[in-house]
Amino acid sequence: MEEQSPFLVAHKFAFKVPTVLEIGTGSGIITTFIAVNDILGQKAVFFTTDLNPFACQCVKETVAHNQSQSVTLDPIQTNLASSLRDHQVDILVFNPPYVPAEEVPAVPCQTQASNESTEDDWLDLALLGGHQGMVVTNVLLDQLHNVLSANGIAYILFCASNVPEEVVVRPDLTARFDISLMEKRKCGWEVLSVYRFVKK
């Protein structure tokens, strides 16, 4: 990761203490890695979101196993970035449910009275992204400009079936973001790429 730190350090964030939001964090390992390895080169406030209540609990455990006393991090159970105030996120990280599927699975019933879902009920939500695997990512892309602060940056992962080369030239996106490919790599049988979206 040493290679990737300098441009973040050089980046002028809107606030002296940046906030980092990881959407669909799962175990919380990505945010924990960013936080404890000082990837940003400065102290930050970290938030993670996930629909899955088991994931939100797991994030706390992952951080607790890794220098939790020096890290400011809170998991939030919510859909994407909803419930976060607009224009507050300086760095956004999203490894979406990108696998093409007939549809995005429904959120398991979690009323206050019956919180009886099991971990297995939530797993498909972490993977399946509907048509071209892009349904969930597209919802986030539509909100992204409002979520990010001035000069905010998002790192979003795509698989080859998402056809990211076509996504990143969409006029509605290029009008609002400077988009660049950060990494493209074969991972097992998948070809994954990470694009950076810098708010204009």
Binding site: L51, P53, C56, Q57, P75, I76, Q77, N79, S82, S83
Partner: peptide
């Protein structure tokens, strides 16, 4: 909205989501 085990839950019932 409820906070349980230190985790705030902002999931909405289907008619509000």
């Amino acid at each position: 909205y409820h906070i349980k085990n230190s985790i705030p839950n902002f999931l909405l019932p289907p008619h509000l989501a």
